[in-house]
Amino acid sequence: MAHGQGRSNQLPENQFVASKLEEMADVLEHQSASEFRIRAYRDAASYVAALPQPIMKVYQKEGRRGLEDLPTIGTSIAAAIAELLDSGRFSVLDRVRGSANSEKLLQTVPMIGPALAHLIYDTLHIDTLEALEAAAINGRLSAIKGIGKRRVESIRHSLNDMLARRRPRKTPVGSSLPPVSDILAVDQEYRETAETLPVIKPRRFNETGLARIPILHTERGPWRFTVIFSNTASAHKYHRTRDWVVIYCDRDDHPELQLTVVTQHGGPLDGRRVIRGHEGACKQHYGL
């Protein structure tokens, strides 16, 4: 299907999407992200604003694949546009601003009420539906006390229906990781440079209203990383707000992944930085 680009005709839906993409570019620029990443959002915003047909029609007819086929729209930006068109949300933008309401997002899934949403977010640090689906597939969700196999399957089926149109054309959710060495190097870079990084203002656990959580945007090979300290209730309870590091990563042919790196206490990995849920790979990395 050919998609032509013409003079902007001020389609409200297209203008809304374009404005959000521009906002993302502005925030990334302020946070010293790579020029390539900033330019990608600006180019996508310009294209969508000038698209002579409603972008929703493209999405309704061809799903995320149709968005990816548009000039200047890569995999990660197609995912952002799909989310905007489905829900009006732009979780990546909310995250880099510090304004994400992760528990409210999780409650959009049938079978997940406020209490369970809080438990999932606080235990797994999950703040996207894609990450929730990955946790349902790899067993991390079923490991939470009180969530039985039947409920996990129900959540998984609901997510499959909700995310069907948003799936990328190539790699399935959770199928691969960046090299463990790269993940741990990014974690180290973040912790060593935290005092010099731009900061965001979280909406939770922030009585002073100050911007206080450092944010890092960096790249390793084809992977793009965004990194922040954990701001969950558990991180505060156990005084790990400067130890638990949440890493979001994606590449052009892979959906976003969410990982948490912590200092291990006890066992053969004691004292080492470990990627939660990938302890086996970390053992191999450390030669244990």
Score class of each variant (00 low, 15 high):
residue 232 T to D: 03
residue 143 A to F: 15
residue 49 A to P: 08
residue 81 I to E: 00
residue 46 S to E: 02
residue 210 L to M: 00
residue 26 D to T: 07
residue 124 L to S: 03
residue 21 L to W: 09
residue 39 R to A: 14
residue 68 E to P: 09
residue 174 G to S: 01
residue 265 H to V: 03
residue 174 G to A: 03
residue 219 E to R: 14
residue 125 H to Q: 08
residue 147 I to L: 13
residue 142 S to Y: 13
residue 76 S to Q: 12
residue 129 L to I: 11
residue 89 R to G: 03
residue 68 E to R: 09
residue 53 Q to T: 12
residue 221 G to R: 06
residue 172 P to A: 04
residue 146 G to V: 04
residue 260 T to V: 04
residue 136 A to K: 09
residue 171 T to C: 01
residue 157 H to S: 08
residue 183 I to G: 01
residue 135 A to N: 11
residue 28 L to E: 01
residue 30 H to C: 05
residue 157 H to K: 15
residue 240 R to H: 10
residue 249 C to G: 07
residue 109 V to C: 10
residue 215 I to C: 03
residue 145 K to T: 06
residue 109 V to N: 12
residue 45 A to C: 01
residue 50 A to Q: 02
residue 131 A to G: 14
residue 269 L to C: 04
residue 35 E to W: 11
residue 193 T to M: 12
residue 91 S to Y: 11
residue 148 G to V: 01
residue 37 R to G: 05
residue 12 P to T: 11
residue 82 A to V: 06
residue 208 T to R: 00
residue 83 E to D: 06
residue 45 A to H: 13
residue 176 S to D: 02
residue 23 E to C: 04
residue 112 I to Q: 09
residue 40 A to H: 06
residue 60 Q to P: 03
residue 1 M to K: 11
residue 281 A to I: 01
residue 100 A to R: 08
residue 214 P to W: 11
residue 1 M to D: 04
residue 259 L to H: 15
residue 231 N to T: 06
residue 242 R to K: 14
residue 112 I to N: 05
residue 228 I to Q: 10
residue 29 E to G: 02
residue 75 T to F: 02
residue 125 H to P: 12
residue 103 E to C: 04
residue 22 E to C: 05
residue 172 P to G: 05
residue 59 Y to F: 04
residue 96 V to N: 06
residue 32 S to N: 00
residue 99 S to V: 10
residue 149 K to Q: 08
residue 194 A to Q: 14
residue 55 I to E: 04
residue 110 P to T: 03
residue 61 K to R: 10
residue 130 E to K: 15
residue 241 T to Q: 07
residue 39 R to F: 10
residue 243 D to F: 08
residue 56 M to E: 07
residue 221 G to T: 02
residue 128 T to Y: 12
residue 279 E to I: 02
residue 287 G to K: 10
residue 271 G to C: 06
residue 161 D to M: 03
residue 226 T to A: 08
residue 278 H to S: 00
residue 117 A to K: 15
residue 164 A to W: 10
residue 227 V to G: 04
residue 170 K to T: 13
residue 118 H to W: 14
residue 184 L to N: 08
residue 223 W to T: 06
residue 51 L to F: 09
residue 106 L to M: 05
residue 230 S to E: 06
residue 288 L to P: 13
residue 198 P to I: 13
residue 117 A to M: 05
residue 11 L to H: 13
